[in-house]
Write a protein that binds this DNA or RNA. Structure first.
Length: 879
RNA sequence: GCCCGUGUGGUGGAAUGGUAGACACGACAGAUUCAAAAUCUGUUGCAGCAAUGCGUGGCGGUUCGAGUCCGCCCACGGGUACCA
């Protein structure tokens, strides 16, 4: 900034522009200009095509991180690009502001969850504003605000009436010391994270959405989501898990040895099982039931051994991962069942800790020969292993592991009972179902893995479930005119558990039906409910009904939804269900049951971890700003000790490798931060944040800015050279960048913009052409670096604001090349190249290729077997 | 465990089945400077003086041609229903 004396001595041309790119000045000025004109405020305009861009709204943790910057920059590029393409853009922002972290903060810091949350929202908004996103802040919503959740409560009541919600028992993680329900993430290795007590599974009556009624619908509709990533559709398909199988019953023999130690439970003379592999029925060697199966529960009452075992099974967390990876345990109940086709055979009934009551019938038969888990179970409990099919007719039956071929593979059925001896698994399954049905042994049924959505949470910081428990009238929805059921504010978190349970003043309320004193429901809703309809609320954020039909009809669906792939299943599936539920209850039009037309899933932002070892052998993680990099090595700024560099880890507070975007913005400006998060990596991949990359981005933007100033001072009368070349490259760049933005190839777009910048820099074209080139460059950069683009536009006399200027259109005539360079391959290896006219016929290209010195040398007088000419691409000579 | 991804130079990455390494970082060399920073120019996959050979996590396959398609394996990441 300061001018040194040596510089002053030189003859300096009179300066007409500031000498340095200063983003802080530029960015503040343009943000004020956009705000003054309210250009991002979305207003319904019937005569304009709309475009709704939505990024998954953030949880207000208090600090934005680079992941947010990336997510919202991606959305902003689309929003600004679509605006330039003439769309009426809706680009709103809000806060997913109920959740566990606020209660944790309350416990740790003694601050009220509401106060903590609202302060975080304020802070994060202040951190986001300098980034210059094209957001319509007038539509801001926070899910923890009664203005939002009262409508959720109203819809909840509508959905109860529509039969979409019911109550049933379900299992939770119970901390027996803290006497509280734990979230899965609060269970560490089977123990409560605070108390350290072994977690138990406990049953509670809870609220459920009947999402499973829509399994087939949600599955089938995936086919129409063409603009969703295939991987997300596949993940949802597998999650819903449609299967066809056989459901049948084994008849039970309760007293096989005649000593009558086990009393036959009433109504349990049969055990219903479901199997997707009925073709393995003759290989069955045991029956397994869930510890939560009615028979297990009956036996538990008067059999101490069973009671002990079942109690053991109930220890540990509830996650599928914990159950599947834990040790497989079983207990022989003494009960036997008859095999339906081998009436002489009796199979033992085991209670097994890996069988889920929620899936199928809560009971299975085990076929150890064709299922690795059953194989291990059979080995452990010394049960027979009986093959039903073999890889060949003479293959040995002795197995050292389960034989599990693809279902599409043909195998030899040595104990088949339906269909051919040689058939595929799929054929055998169908044949087995048909045969069993004809014999009156069960029937073919379709089942889904998808379970109903349990929405009850035994927590304070969530949307209260608007129902009342009355001694006389039972469970009754609150009257709509009494909404919102607001959370009480006078609560404390010094005692574990849900403060709502203890708040008798809040709980006590008149029964909506009979008026007598009754008690409020103290469960609150899963935060996935909040995020299942915010996209719809954004279309009419201040309405006194959940949605407004005209607005929903105009703005829905979301044209482009952007967020992390970690939401591929739960959030996105729940939102799809909820849109249907809203349609049924009259809150969304039929056309909006699939609310997200296109989905883009972006990767994480990662950063190296700097680690050293402290005196007590415990690892110390250093912040990036504490570390100085020299090549591959890193040293502490203080003391100079070398630290270990662990590359590319997910940014995490506990590892101190979180880069604060605010410091990047204050050092280099928002445009640099935006340019950098877009530049190096494709948006769907994880991106490594490096300080050097950010500096490079800043240098480039400075170059563009300097270039603009230089062009402003060129003599306008100068003729210049290479005008057409620069214009040609300009049109190619318009074309390439437009295509790249349309396909989320922002990193590729930026590479083209680098190339075009270099071309302008080296160009000797006239001032008019150079001016046109850099104005176009500014337009193409505007979605990414809007402040810099506006500044260039203004300096070189562009009309109005660049943000509201239509997107440039490439001249098709300028895109075609007269000649092309064709690589010449011999046997697929590149051996040379030739320049030919673009429209040269194949046989002439072939002649030229064969005349190439390298080809002649390799052919060595012989003739080629074959010559492949792909016009405009390649020539391959096969010898 | 199960489901879904990802894997390319020293680094981030590019490449409708058609010249592997665009663009950028870093490094090296040069210009400029009293000197440095900044800026500008050039070189840079590996081996080799070179001709050339080898190269996209590993092994195999399809193809005139494979980073790209298929099969198996390895490593890492996401999800696994109460983190959001």
């Amino acid at each position: 900034m300061t001018t040194c004396p040596a510089f002053r001595r030189k003859k300096v041309p009179p300066m007409t522009a500031p000498t340095r790119y200063t983003p802080s000045e530029i960015e503040a000025r343009w943000q004020a200009a956009w705000e003054k004109d309210d250009i991002f405020k979305a207003v319904r305009k019937a005569d304009m095509p709309k475009y709704y861009v939505l990024e998954m709204f953030p949880y207000p943790s208090g600090r934005i991180h680079m992941g947010h910057v990336r997510n919202y920059t991606l959305g902003d590029v689309i929003a600004r690009y679509k605006m330039a393409k003439g769309f009426n853009v809706l680009h709103p922002m809000g806060w997913d502001s109920f959740g566990l972290a606020a209660e944790n903060a309350a416990m740790q810091k003694g601050i009220h969850p509401g106060e903590w949350t609202y302060q975080n929202i304020e802070d994060m908004k202040n951190q986001m504003k300098p980034l210059g996103f094209s957001l319509d802040w007038s539509r801001e919503i926070a899910t923890c605000h009664p203005d939002y959740y009262q409508h959720q409560q109203a819809m909840f009541i509508d959905m109860i009436e529509a039969g979409l919600i019911y109550r049933k028992n379900a299992i939770v993680n119970w901390d027996p010391v803290d006497m509280t329900v734990l979230a899965n993430e609060q269970v560490e290795q089977g123990r409560g994270w605070r108390s350290g007590a072994l977690v138990e599974r406990r049953e509670l009556t809870q609220w459920f959405f009947k999402i499973s009624d829509y399994s087939d619908e949600l599955l089938g509709a995936l086919d129409n989501l063409e603009n969703w990533p295939a991987k997300v559709r596949l993940m949802q398909e597998n999650w819903i898990g449609k299967s066809r199988g056989l459901q049948f019953a084994f008849s039970t023999i309760f007293d096989p040895e005649g000593d009558a130690t086990i009393s036959p439970p009433d109504g349990h003379d049969r055990i219903e099982v479901y199997t997707t592999r009925p073709d393995t029925l003759l290989g069955a060697s045991f029956v397994g039931i869930s510890p939560d199966h009615p028979i297990a529960k009956l036996l538990e009452r008067d059999n101490a051994e069973v009671a002990k075992f079942v109690a053991e099974c109930r220890k540990g967390g509830t996650t599928e991962e914990a159950i599947e990876t834990g040790e497989k345990l079983g207990l022989d109940t003494g009960i036997r069942v008859r095999h339906p086709f081998d009436t002489g055979a009796e199979l033992p009934v085991y209670i097994a800790n890996f069988i889920l009551m929620d899936y199928g019938t809560g009971a299975i038969f085990g076929c150890p020969a064709h299922d690795q888990r059953d194989f291990e179970f059979a080995t452990k409990y010394d049960l027979p292993i009986i093959s039903t099919y073999l890889p060949s007719e003479d293959a040995a039956e002795e197995l050292t592991e389960a034989y599990v071929p693809q279902k599409t593979e043909k195998v030899f059925y040595n104990r088949g009972f339906a269909g051919e001896q040689w058939q595929t698994g799929l054929e055998a399954i169908d044949a087995a179902i048909t045969f069993c049905e004809s014999q009156g042994v069960g029937q073919g049924v379709t089942k889904f893995r998808l379970r109903d959505w349990g929405l009850s949470r035994q927590r304070y910081w969530g949307c209260p479930i608007p129902v009342v428990h009355c001694d006389d009238c039972g469970v009754v929805p609150e009257k709509k005119e009494n909404l919102p059921v607001k959370l009480p504010e006078d609560v404390t978190f010094d005692i574990p558990g849900n403060p709502l349970d203890r708040h008798m003043e809040w709980r006590t309320t008149p029964c909506p039906t009979c008026g007598k004193d009754a008690l409020r429901e103290t469960d609150t809703m899963d935060t996935f409910v909040d995020s299942s309809w915010y996209y719809a609320r954004f279309t009419a954020p201040h309405a006194d009904t959940p949605t407004v039909m005209e607005d929903a009809e105009y703005w829905m669906n979301v044209d482009q939804y952007i967020g992390g792939v970690e939401h591929a299943i739960l959030h996105l599936l729940y939102a799809r269900f909820f849109a249907r539920a809203m349609q049924i209850t009259g809150h969304l039009p039929e056309s909006a049951v699939e609310p997200f037309d296109a989905l883009f899933t972006q990767g994480m932002v990662t950063h190296a971890i700097y680690k050293s070892v402290g005196a007590d052998d415990r690892p110390i993680f250093h912040y990036p700003e504490e570390v100085e990099l020299k090549g591959d090595q890193a040293f502490l700024k203080e003391g100079g000790a070398e630290v270990e560099v662990i590359p590319s880890a997910k940014m995490s507070k506990s590892k101190n490798n979180v880069v604060d975007p605010l410091s990047i913005i204050s050092d280099f400006g928002a445009d640099t931060a935006r340019w950098f998060v877009l530049s190096d990596s494709p948006p769907e991949r994880d991106v490594e944040w490096t300080a050097s990359g950010a500096e490079a981005a800043y240098k480039h933007l400075s170059r563009v800015w300097n270039l603009c100033n230089r062009i402003a001072t060129i003599d306008t009368a100068r003729e210049g050279k290479g005008n057409d070349d620069l214009l040609k490259q300009m049109h190619k760049t318009i074309h390439d960048v437009t295509m790249a933005i349309e396909s989320f190839g922002f990193n590729a777009a930026i590479a083209k913009l680098y190339g075009f910048t270099a071309a302008i820099q080296k160009s000797d074209a006239s001032q008019a052409v150079q001016r046109e080139a850099i104005l176009t460059l500014a337009q193409l950069m505007a979605p990414m670096t809007p402040h810099l683009a506006e500044d260039i536009w203004e300096k070189l006399g562009g009309e109005g604001m660049i943000t509201t200027t239509p997107w440039p259109v490439a001249d098709e005539a300028m895109l075609v090349d007269d000649t092309v360079t064709l690589p010449i391959q011999v046997n697929g290896k590149r051996r040379g190249e030739i320049d030919v006219p673009a429209d040269m016929p194949k046989d002439e290209v072939e002649k030229l290729a064969l005349a190439h010195p390298n080809v002649i040398r390799i052919l060595d007088g012989g003739s080629p077997k074959k010559v492949i000419v792909v016009p405009g691409r390649i020539v391959n000579v096969v010898v």
